[in-house]
Design a protein around this nucleic acid. Structure first.
Lengths: 101, 101
DNA sequence: CCTATAGATTACCGTACAGTAATATATCTT
DNA sequence: AAGATATATTACTGTACGGTAATCTATAGG
């Protein structure tokens, strides 16, 4: 699941920006095609790690707020050594009591 | 090809140890089964990046010496940003004119 | 209102990599 | 020398991820 670097980067970007559209996310992955990002988002959504809200024809994705503390961080703690530094910022966000937008 | 982290790590280990058996390599990959390592070695061998010599029932693998300077390093230079620091040591080895055993 | 376009998702397919099990080859034991 | 064991490879299979193309939904334009 989160073993996939692309999905970790997606979470990282969402943590950083608070909210992003599929296209906005896809633009950050020059080597991937948007439908690929969409598929990753579907997986993340099925896992309850992100939520989406329609906004016209776009869809705004964000990290599921409650999941941050209950699921993601424990997971992070366990596998931290294998991860990119980027996600560490996510931990920082939470430790400051700051909900990611 | 070398986009695969396992293969990069294999090359790294060979650069570090000079020579290793399949089992010796496999022991460094607790999450992989030996046949998997063997398959990676086959790929690397087909690509001419490593060579093997029999030693009883084991097989000693090493980085193909001439390939180091002619193929691997240019490749490294191109994709360096995506790589682990570990392989940087390989570059160091060569710049010191040191053939990896 | 009907068509065209934008954004997102889904359907379908190919490839790469991992595992288990089977197979080859060499060494050891008796 | 024959069988048992060690080491490595191969055969076969499943799964995950990526791409292209088709589809869905919403907006924009005439």
């Amino acid at each position: 699941m989160l073993a996939d670097p692309t999905r970790r980067r997606v979470l990282d970007l969402l943590a950083e920006h608070g909210t992003l559209t599929v296209g906005g996310l896809a633009a950050r992955f020059p080597d991937l095609v948007p439908s690929g990002i969409s598929k990753h988002l579907m997986v993340l959504r099925a896992a309850g790690l992100v939520t989406a809200t329609r906004q016209g024809r776009q869809r705004l994705y964000r990290i599921a707020p409650d999941v941050l503390t209950t699921a993601l961080l424990p997971w992070l703690a366990k596998y931290a050594p294998y991860w990119s530094d980027a996600l560490e910022r996510l931990r920082g966000l939470v430790e400051d009591g700051e909900a990611p937008a």
